[in-house]
Write a protein that binds this DNA or RNA. Structure first.
Lengths: 258, 258
DNA sequence: CGTGGCCTTGAATAACCTCAATTAAGGTGG
DNA sequence: CCACCTTAATTGAGGTTATTCAAGGCCACG
């Protein structure tokens, strides 16, 4: 399952990418191998066909480009098909806070609903494909299909709960705990998508990690090095191998032994 | 408008409280003076009567008691009629993070939707009344009334956006900036409910403020004292008067002069 | 009037940040 | 394909901010 993405993830050269893109670019949700992540389960074929209409179009976003930015009028949610994003807010004086990293199967754009305008930027950290889901479609189909309605509510609630954990991280934890939690969360999400539980290639810089975790890039780097020195992980630039996940969990929560 | 709450807010002795409670305890949303805060606007009388059924019951929560706690099964959202709450999450080793403070007209319990169980605690910081809105009612009526559906989505999106700002606060700002932002936010929300824009009585301890803002109670206290010394505010325990709101805004964002 | 909880304040310490120099990696054009 | 250039990551030294630990004051309540 999801092995196509595995290949995609490992090989970043354009040829392979095109190959995989063609292979995975199905037209409809009903044929999408990420359906279980984006969409509710337990639909019959007929309903599923109707649900396909929730996605209006696809958009391809190049690495470094914005999917949407602060102030843009909100019309659609976006389901990530391939690629990786960060969302961030910034102050007038230029300080930036990364509010999240999103990968395939995750939904972005929820921030725009409240005011009909986006309040953050979504930046592609690698070449990405997204499914554009006009929010009016989402709402219309939600009224028709209680299962979809519940699903949308769960997605928003999940985001609220995630942000609660980040607040805990930022408010109560020290640098190394934050990085441990970050790595464990990342690898867990990747594993749910069919990737390794122990190896990963970071898609973001030390500075972006630091912004997310409320610390400076040097502090992030030092924490990586420390984990490396202690044999908990192997680090080489953006490649990370988790050698001793138990120790990492122990750092994240000292009470949790093994 | 909302003057009943003004009285309630100022006088915390039980007699007055009972008096006000009786005065404001209307049965239905249609007759509630907080309707504009909790409910969508622009309904005709007929629809409004149907919307009244979203609230099943009332619950009174004594100061210090829990409305719900981590692990409780989720069935309902709660609209605060009177009173004040904090929500908080905690780690196994006992560290607590306040994730928000909620006042009249605000909705709590959204964290429970994703897993059908609450993932945080909601504690009354004063004797409070809440409207219990079974989530199945909310979803059912949302399917019937697009305006309500949109309203529910906006409430969840607003919470996501709020938490984004808190992440900015925790990740990028220094102690005094955080406290300035906190006070400005609090007084702005109180003002929207008919209270003073310059005076307030804090319902939470220094420790709870500190937990929310990611700092220790001593640091909170020092920041209060510093603002007091500089004549920006007057502080006496939990009473705070904002004397120079412009300076407070300037601290919050140095670029924003006046 | 005494007690306990909350708040304030001070001094010493630790954690993280800033500044700066060095090294490594990736991209580009010859 | 390689040298160069640019960007990202690492590491060290010193400074700043917030924390920790501790003592004393204020206030509400019995």
């Amino acid at each position: 399952m999801l092995t196509g993405y595995d290949v995609y993830w490992q090989n970043m050269n354009p040829e392979t990418m095109t190959e995989v893109s063609v292979a995975t670019l199905k037209v409809a949700c009903s044929g999408c191998n990420l359906r279980e992540l984006c969409m509710p389960v337990g639909f019959n074929t007929e309903d599923m066909q109707k649900l396909d209409t929730v996605v209006a179009t696809r958009r391809r976003i190049k690495q470094g480009d914005l999917l949407f930015s602060n102030g843009d009028s909100f019309t659609s949610l976006f389901a990530i098909r391939t690629g990786f994003f960060k969302t961030c807010v910034s102050t007038i004086d230029g300080r930036e806070q990364v509010t999240g990293f999103q990968m395939a199967g995750e939904i972005i754009g929820l921030d725009g609903i409240v005011s009909d305008h986006h309040s953050c930027n979504a930046v592609a950290l690698e070449d990405s494909d997204v499914c554009v889901m006009p929010f009016s479609n989402v709402e219309e189909l939600s009224r028709e299909f209680p299962v979809l309605q519940r699903h949308v509510h769960k997605i928003m609630s999940r985001e609220i709960v995630r942000e609660n954990s980040v607040m805990m991280l930022l408010g109560n934890m020290r640098a190394e705990e934050r990085l441990a939690a970050f790595l464990l969360n990342l690898v867990q999400r990747l594993h749910a998508r069919g990737f390794s539980q122990s190896e990963l290639t970071l898609r973001m810089s030390r500075e972006e990690i630091g912004s997310y975790l409320g610390m400076k890039l040097e502090t992030v780097s030092r924490a990586f090095s420390k984990f490396g020195d202690e044999g908990i992980i192997e680090v080489k630039q953006r490649y990370v191998k988790i050698v001793k996940p138990d120790l990492l969990k122990k750092i994240f929560n000292p009470e949790t032994c093994i």
